[in-house]
Design a binder for these strands. Structure first.
Lengths: 186, 186
DNA sequence: ACCTGAACACCGTTCAAGT
DNA sequence: ACCTGAACACCGTTCAAGT
């Protein structure tokens, strides 16, 4: 018999429940059986919508990544666009810290993070980074932001700036690296 | 009866087996039962030497951290000492990538990473960083290296530099951030 | 002091069976 | 098409018992 109240059980419904469990207790708090209980469903029903636990997590990560708000290709200066990209990425990371930490430790898990890399490429090209160095520069910049967010999601950035919050420190650090980049490309 | 060949089972022996398992299959490859099998011992015997699995992992991480080769306090320039510190840290991360990734995602797991923070403080003070900004600068620098190593341990840095290996990219990135720091303190 | 076996409450996943 | 129950091979950990 069907213990469920409504319609079949959608993948969105499943992802939402995954986020609830992971947000509240980390990735290690997610189990197929707990997830089924959260959805008021038999554990085995999940396997009709998802290949296995790994695929489920990958799917949830991709779903979150698609929510990335990429800066548009208007004429604004590259520094501003990079800042906007960094903040968009940070916003997603902070809304699901545990899941982001998991993705960060397993890169390649989500192939296209909402087209982030293409935008990154465009802005860096506009900044004057030669095509041959693009991937390297992009990777280094990304790792920098990734490191900052690792610190922030673990509370290492909290109360670090006497006059402000973690965002102040994040901004200052991004400015630092943008200055360094600027002095290289000009 | 004792299925073991020799003496009681030392904590060093246990940590060594933990490293073997984690190095070869990641932290998720470590289970108390597999570890016991690796040591040719009853699973329950482990609990006589270690409180539980979390404490075991924490202990193994601390043991590794104690192997950090800190740069001595000779008169060498601060840039060179920071580079040496970064390389010492990198060396440990690369020798146990999976364990390092775990520590990186769980900061505060190992309290004193072999006195790394004290050395960091000393060198930054020598570089002219005001005492009030020391922790913030240190944290930002650390997160930068942490991000680079996350990339390197996941293979993102491999083959990025046309003329060299991942170390070349690592060095170039460290130089970039040292330049940025230098232009702030002088 | 150190080790052990049985037991408990969990896991992910397969498979044959139900509607 | 979608769901389910029983089953299998795993987990971490407790506890009473052995030497």
């Amino acid at each position: 018999m069907s213990a469920r109240r409504g319609q079949p059980l959608t993948i969105q419904e499943i992802y939402a429940a995954v986020l609830r469990l992971v947000d509240e207790g980390g990735v290690e708090n997610l189990s197929m059986r707990k997830l089924a209980a959260e959805l008021d469903v038999n554990p085995m029903s999940l396997y009709h919508h998802v290949e296995n636990k790994d695929a489920l997590l990958r799917g949830a990560c991709t779903a979150v990544a698609l929510g990335l708000r990429l800066p548009p290709d208007d004429g604004t200066p590259w520094q501003e666009q990079l800042r906007a990209l960094a903040h968009a990425y940070r916003s997603i990371a902070l809304s699901h810290p545990a899941l982001w930490s998991y993705v960060n430790a397993h890169p390649g898990l989500v192939e296209q993070e909402g087209g982030m890399w293409e935008v990154f490429n465009r802005v860096l090209a506009a900044a004057g980074v030669p095509a041959g160095e693009l991937v390297r520069v992009r990777t280094v910049l990304y790792t920098f932001v990734s490191g900052l967010l690792t610190a922030e999601t673990s509370g290492l950035l909290a109360g670090l700036d006497p006059d402000g919050d973690a965002e102040t420190t994040f901004d200052a650090a991004v400015d630092l690296i943008l200055d360094a980049l600027g002095s290289r490309v000009t």
